[in-house]
Amino acid sequence: MKFRIYRYNPETDDAPYMQDYDLSIDAGDKMLLDAILLIKEQDDSLSLRKSCREGVCGSDAMNINGRNGLACITQLSELKQPIELRPLPGLPVIRDLVVDMTQFFKQYHSIKPYLVNNDPPPETERLQSVTARAELDGLYECILCGCCTTACPSFWWNPDKFVGPAGLLQAYRFLADTRDQATAERLDNLEDPYRLFRCHSIMNCVDVCPKELNPTRAIAKIKDMMVKRIV
């Protein structure tokens, strides 16, 4: 199988380049990550992040034939050759397929991603109805891989100002939690021409999310809450 992989090592390379690899394997049931690791056995200088190899840790997000995804749950047999691998777009490259995610996590942290409840905790659990808990489905499952945010043109233009789909999905995860008491502060925190409202519903985020989550819908719900508190 033929691969074209983005290579860049700042210590030795003046500029990034694409390197071709030819791997004699049968795609069979293999995932893309399996193939990349076989390439790495031949050329140990190829750098990438990896961990769980089952799509829950979010380490091996990359741009695969032009589309963001996780290498470990991308079927090799479904990819057109040469398989072109690049780092996630819109973030600085540290080396090869490894990007600097500082900006991504800065935006995630900016939405105060933790439950706020200032009542003294009860001796047992805080109660939550089945329907209230169901509001968190499709939100809490985010693995912070960065596929969505780095596929978003609004984030490319304003990475320092626009929270991005991953961060906003988590913002709504806490807004939607009946146990959380910081609704007003959370909405104030997003009341800004950029932080929330730079989302133009392009829906690249929905298209690429490897967990099939829907940040655009969450963003629309936040916008709704903004409107409702004015009227």
Binding site: Y114, L115, N117, P121, E123, T124, E125, R126, L127, Q128, S129, V130, A132, R133, L136, Y140, F174, D177, R179, D180
Partner: peptide, 23 residues
Amino acid sequence: APEVVYELEHFGMPFDRLDNGKI
């Protein structure tokens, strides 16, 4: 065990719920 699980719930853990609202 019960205490650390309740604590985790207070931290915001999205446990599934029973009809009576408990974990």
